[in-house]
Design a protein around this nucleic acid. Structure first.
Lengths: 210, 210
DNA sequence: CAACAGTGGAAATCAAGATCGGCATACAGA
DNA sequence: TCTGTATGCCGATCTTGATTTCCACTGTTG
């Protein structure tokens, strides 16, 4: 009759045992919070462990190091973001509506209350090749999708269309992040609509010269 | 007649004495090179000193620390960048030409062969309040200038025009940086012209609704 | 020739990531 | 119910890398 329910205090200051998967998820949540709050370099493994109510060795039993922990989170977020965008793209076959839906999806991701965008776009680890490769791949995918839309409607070369695609992708990112920092004075719908109109006016029937 | 040219070796491995200002400029040049090559966190004070052919104590006599050294460089670059943009804005009174000139100036700054843009936009120190405050101030100034142009030509509210200004400022930044990484397949003139046209089509006579 | 400003080598300090050995807990099988 | 064993967990420590400072030396200048 000693080992009562695990909720009882087994030993003061010791956290309950968890199955490996569940513990891993918990650690990821904690790491997410700390990275979001402090950025990559500002986040200490100590603090992540403490946030998860766990000691550091536990952290290292699940992840080889800080970088890998961050990369795991980055992969998760980029995957869900990509899914959002792909769904928006596939939601219609009308290019105008596509741009609209995609822009809206972009703003939605930025507005998510887990602040995943901070981890993705404001980590101070952009110089790491693994990180920049992932971000570059993501941006390339998004920008190319826009470039295809542009190419359909214009006479531009592939290179030129791609440049414009990047430009609009960047516009979406920067403007959405700015919008968020204004404490959402404008409604999400209003803001994303404005940017969509700006983008669509810019590219639709874009003339080859002048 | 003893103090010969300082280029003579006073003592092997010892650098010639320099007036304080000149030494400072030399240190800034060296720091710039190292920061650009390695990013903020990747840059070691050792390496900066070595690049300047000087010992670390000298470095610390001119700058209290690594952060201040970086901030000094950031201030310099932002000031010269601002000057570039202001000149472009004042080069004409026609708003269309203004946007054109400004976009061109943006690409020129990114293309400068000292790679100052890396130090400004790709430093991994964006979470530092001093740094983000400076970047935010710079972006605000630039975006507000664009917003004024927009407000002149449209019926949009101040908030809405500012959001669009940010959007275009972000577009300039992201597209110029992308363009640079394509090894300048497109000529600077061609690329900046494309982006300018995209921007101007987007904002000129922007309708209040739909 | 004497004070002085500037310099470099080397070492103190410090923060943060990573690890080691042992203890506690749950569960399986007798 | 009892006991063995594998698994999860922790305190304490090690290690590394970078910033910062100390001190003796050297050339310069009045």
């Amino acid at each position: 009759m000693q080992q009562l329910s695990p909720a009882q205090s087994p030993t003061p200051g010791r956290s309950a045992r968890l199955p490996r998967d569940e513990r891993r998820r918990q650690l990821l949540r904690a790491a997410h919070d700390v990275f979001v709050a402090n950025g990559y370099h500002g986040a200490a493994m100590d603090e992540i462990a403490e946030t998860a109510h766990v000691s550091k060795p536990v952290l290292y039993q699940h992840f080889p190091g800080k970088r890998e922990l961050y990369l795991a989170l980055l992969d998760n977020h980029l995957a869900s973001f990509t899914e959002l965008l792909v769904d928006a793209l596939n939601s219609t076959t009308d290019n105008k509506q596509r741009v609209h839906a995609t822009m809206h999806a972009y703003f939605q991701f930025i507005a998510k209350d887990d602040q995943a965008h901070r981890l993705v776009f404001e980590s101070d680890l952009n110089n790491d090749p693994e990180v920049s490769a992932r971000l570059e791949a993501f941006n390339a995918k998004y920008a190319d999708a826009i470039a295809r839309v542009i190419a359909e409607d214009t006479q531009l070369s592939h290179e030129e269309a791609t440049l414009l695609g990047r430009a609009l992708a960047g516009m979406a990112q920067i403007s959405a992040r700015y919008w968020l920092e204004t404490d959402k004075n404008l409604d999400l719908e209003v803001a994303s609509e404005l940017i969509y109109r700006l983008a669509w006016r810019g590219i639709s029937r874009f003339p080859k010269e002048t």
